[in-house]
Amino acid sequence: MTRFESASPGARATLIAVGLLLLAALATVFTVLIALIGVGRFSSDIDPLRVPAWLWHYRADPDLRRWLRIGGLISGFISGVVIAAVLLAQRRPLHGAARWAAERDLRRAGLRAREGVVLGRNGAGFLISGGPEHVMLYAPTRTGKGVGVVIPNLLTWPGSVVVLDIKRENYMATAGFRAAAGQRVLLFDPLAADGRTTRFNPLGHIDRTNAPAVLDELQRMAVMLFPGHDHADPFWSEAARTGFIGVGAYVAETPDLHFSLGEVFRQLTHGDTRTRFPDVIEARTLGGSPLSSGCVSALTDFCSSSENTFASIRQTITSRMGLWLNPLVDAATAASDFDLRDLRQGDLSIYLGAS
């Protein structure tokens, strides 16, 4: 690392300013020298101190003005070449130019905020990022990510949080404190053997009476549940999405059924699905409560495959929804005790556990 690179920002700015002033002075001298030569006034016994007065006296002379312009262009070109050469010569140091941040660097980076994400601390206090930037922490297992960063932030962050807390360690350490601070604290742990979990129905926010909204939300969910793969036949994932959407829309449009993923799974695995749904479509039409056109189209497409193909499609769907074989998961997702939109109010803390 050169002395210039290791200097403080203020010192570097001063050095750059001095260098530019010197370059400008040399360019001015060179311009005047070219002008004097051009008008035939340059000699070995010329007095440099009298040159400015002479230039001012003959400032209106067209020949002098022309040579000053020529000299200025030549000096400007040479100055540009010099500046470009200096910039191109600034290569990255062989061993890098990293250094520890000084206090001014921390403040310039916005790491001395009063509120925000706690990143750490140094001798002058805590390092807190108060900006809108995302923060990612990457470290090996058992290196203190939880006790050093996660828990301190859960004890200081005033707004809503969603915490992926597989072992429930963060919940045990911080839930009581956040509740005492006025937060509504919830633990979603659908596999908890003691049933100690809040409930969340991923379909609970959908207005089941609005068929277009139901299809739109089910399509979004189907893409997440049955993603396509680059090196696989897209038919199976697309067919699985269609079947899921059709059965989900049927559940939504049947008031006697609970609109949940568990119920969708039960409808897919109950009886001979391939022959049952065409009968349902016909019965609903004759009974005066027909299913929506989108639901009928999806179910018809789903059930129109050959027996073997249909079995494979249904297996694709049920294999992705196998969690709902567990009655604990089914019960935990049958209804919602909260609305995810409440996170925007800033007083909701949700811990996601997996016992």
Rank of each mutant, 00 (worst) to 15 (best):
R284D: 04
E307Q: 14
L299D: 03
T300W: 04
G287H: 09
T273E: 06
V264N: 02
D279F: 03
R274H: 07
G271H: 08
L286Q: 15
A283D: 09
R266F: 06
N308V: 13
L286K: 15
T285H: 13
D279N: 11
C295D: 01
L268C: 09
S306Y: 06
L268A: 06
G294P: 01
N308R: 15
E307M: 10
L286H: 13
R266N: 11
L291E: 02
F302L: 11
S297G: 10
S260Y: 02
R266E: 13
E263Q: 14
E263Y: 02
H258C: 09
R274G: 04
H258R: 15
D272Q: 07
L261G: 00
T309M: 12
R266H: 10
S293G: 07
L299N: 02
F265H: 06
F265N: 00
R266A: 13
S292Q: 07
T269A: 10
F265I: 00
L299G: 02
V296Y: 01
N308M: 11
S297C: 06
S304N: 08
S292E: 08
P278I: 05
G294A: 03
A283G: 03
T285V: 10
R284Q: 10
E282D: 14
A298K: 05
G262E: 05
S260H: 01
T300P: 02
G288T: 09
D256H: 06
T300G: 07
T309D: 15
V280R: 07
L299P: 02
L268R: 05
S260G: 08
D301H: 11
R276P: 04
G262Q: 03
V264H: 01
H270Y: 12
E282P: 01
F259M: 11
G287K: 08
T273S: 09
D256E: 15
Q267G: 14
T285G: 12
P290H: 10
L261H: 00
A298I: 03
S305V: 03
T300V: 08
T285P: 00
F277N: 03
D272A: 07
S306T: 14
Q267L: 12
G287Q: 08
G294C: 03
G288R: 09
T273Y: 01
S306A: 11
L268F: 05
G287Y: 07
P278L: 06
G262H: 01
F277I: 05
R284K: 12
T309I: 14
S304D: 08
T285E: 15
Q267W: 10
T300E: 13
S305Y: 12
S293R: 12
E263V: 07
L268Y: 05
E307S: 15
S297P: 03
S297K: 12
S297D: 12
C295Y: 00
G262Y: 00
I281W: 08
L268E: 04
S304W: 01
P278A: 07
L291P: 01
V264D: 01
S293N: 09
R276Y: 13
R284I: 03
R276I: 03
S305K: 12
L257K: 13
V264I: 15
S297W: 05
G288C: 09
C295P: 00
T309N: 15
E307W: 09
V280P: 00
L291C: 06
G294F: 04
P290C: 10
D256M: 07
A298L: 02
F302G: 02
L299M: 08
I281S: 06
F277L: 06
T300Q: 12
G287C: 07
C303W: 05
L261V: 01
S289G: 09
T285C: 07
D279K: 12
L268W: 04
S260P: 04
V280E: 09
H270P: 02
